[in-house]
Design a binder for these strands. Structure first.
Lengths: 336, 336
DNA sequence: CTGAAAGCGCTAACAA
DNA sequence: TTGTTAGCGCTTTCAG
């Protein structure tokens, strides 16, 4: 920058003005500076500029999800990226692996880099300690889940209702023995979905069999294992509600392996690529993760723009897609 | 930091020393500083620190892929993230959308943020202009594809061989009319795969029918459209090689819609989640995108560590997974 | 072992 | 319209 100023025969401040398109620069001074910058291949250092700038915006945000590799998370990322790009904001991304320690380390790392805001899929049960540090200064928006003790905007799917509708759908096909396979109960999403399942069962006057509730299942492999355990029960379920994409895939693989893929009904949450071509075609309650990501980013930018209204809980509806796997009827001799 | 120094009754430099764990600080001065830092909830600003530091490392890298939402890309990201995290380096990610303009804008944005290095899935055909700016200062590693005129480390799959093997596999099941559906020919990966297809056809003494080469197909929807066009030919192909994940899914959907999913053989590149449960089960040449991402990151960090050996071309082998869709034999009356 | 001064690349506030 | 001075939060250099 010094060199540019020298070559153009102006002061540093004038260069700064030209670079930033500030007014009050004579056109020919401006062109002289631009030429000099071009010749010297000068590009401003936005990091240094942001350090000096009084509003101290870094024009960067951080997105923390459970794994960048997870299709739901990367679709959320997609939505976030779209709105960030419109605002010329870049985004750091990292995976928490559902580990509170990793989450805290990442949060600290990004806060130290003075990101303007954070979009978080919270892992920890208690974020107080972390947010003692971040809270005041950096706006946070939670996405997909909320966190106890964390007062911030939240964007989630209507998990409870989606789970209720999914379960009810199974019940409407004559099933009475409906099992649920669900994620870590530390995750609000999993708790809400379990609640929706419970709601539907209660509404139908059916008891909740403890054996039919497979909790803390968190991977495709575990989903398959959980399914096998369910089917090995003395009185196995006739329908399965898999409360997460990976669990659905794992469970269905289990059913196929047991030769039950066309006997036992299964419905999941989140759509899978090519889910229509799977045998049997997947019935799912489809979230719209890109929209969820967009909304979270919009909320974050609103905060950055000075919105200090009370925190919002944005709930996004979930769309049923019934393709077959969830419409397998209960066996005729269901009376046992 | 000033406040910490004041509270601890020491100079700025001493605080800096304690924070960075530099030697030559008496233990009790150190604890005094640490206590003060804790009390004041002081956390260093790593951005400002990096600005002042002579080596000027930002401990950040950028990853540019076609879309963060693409399963191949996010798996690469996963690999990159794993090795970046080991080094306490954060990563910016962004999608180029296969647009050279977007790519250039992102490259400039990240260079202006002085990332230490860049991992890139190149879109442009000519990167000279961009790299005039970046080349000297910021190491770049290409991943998945290489770019003409770009002298840098590259990590790709063995695309040509994978395509050759896939095509040969179809030929070995008696097919003679084998079509290829492939991506933009500006993409090196697509060109190499087309070459592999050509290799296999030539080795079998078969001509390349222009009509059987569907190029510049770049989405699931377009893949389906391309498939339908192929099957509408007077003499349609009996086997399809889909040179990319999304194209395979689109093409298969087309076959299913035409009721030909069990008549026409199809083999793809890249595995799809639940590909084993699709009807028919997918035969694919599976890349290992996480490994590719890891290797790219390792190469980048080697450069950052001062490795100035000649640029490397790392080629990763592709693993065949034959599950059914690629083993459908040619029809008996294949004579004409 | 510790501190004072200078400066990283840039912008803010004010002056000319 | 332009330039000067100070300073962002930190590290460096060199002197104590």
């Amino acid at each position: 920058m010094r060199d540019v100023a020298a070559l153009a025969g102006v002061s540093l401040k004038t260069v700064s003005r030209v670079i930033n398109g500030e007014p009050n620069v004579s056109p020919d001074t401006a062109t002289r500076v631009q030429l000099a910058a071009k010749r010297l291949r000068y590009y401003p250092d936005v990091v240094a500029a942001n350090l000096a700038r009084s509003d101290r915006q870094s024009r960067s945000i951080a997105l923390l999800t459970s794994s960048v590799d997870n299709p739901f998370c990367s679709a959320v990322f997609r939505g976030v990226e779209e709105v960030a790009r419109e605002r010329q904001v870049v985004v750091f991304t990292a995976s928490t692996e559902e580990s509170p320690q990793t989450e805290e380390a990442l949060l600290t790392a990004f806060a130290s880099r003075s990101v303007d805001g954070i979009i978080l899929t919270p892992t920890s049960q208690d974020h107080r300690a972390i947010f003692d540090r971040i809270d005041a200064s950096i706006p946070v928006v939670c996405v997909d889940r909320y966190a106890p003790g964390l007062q911030c905007d939240v964007v989630t799917a209507n998990n409870r209702e989606a789970a209720r509708a999914a379960t009810e759908h199974l019940l409407s096909h004559g099933h009475k023995r409906v099992a649920i396979i669900t994620d870590f109960s530390t995750i609000s999403t999993a708790r809400d979905r379990l609640q929706g399942y419970t709601d539907a069962m209660a509404a139908a006057g059916l008891p909740i069999e403890k054996d039919y509730v497979a909790q803390d299942v968190n991977s495709e492999a575990d989903g398959m294992a959980a399914l096998c355990a369910l089917m090995a029960l003395p009185v196995p379920p006739t329908a399965i509600f898999a409360s997460q994409l990976l669990l659905m895939v794992g469970a269905l693989r289990g059913l196929r392996q047991l030769g039950l893929a066309h006997e036992v009904a299964i419905i999941g949450i989140d759509d899978v690529r090519a889910g229509d071509m799977i045998d049997p075609p997947l019935s799912v309650m489809a979230q719209n993760p890109v929209a969820i990501g967009r909304m979270a980013a919009e909320r974050l930018f609103a905060r950055l723009d000075g919105d200090d209204s009370p925190t919002q809980d944005i709930v996004v509806e979930v769309a049923p897609i019934f393709r077959g796997s969830g419409e397998i009827p209960a066996p005729a001799n269901h009376g046992e």
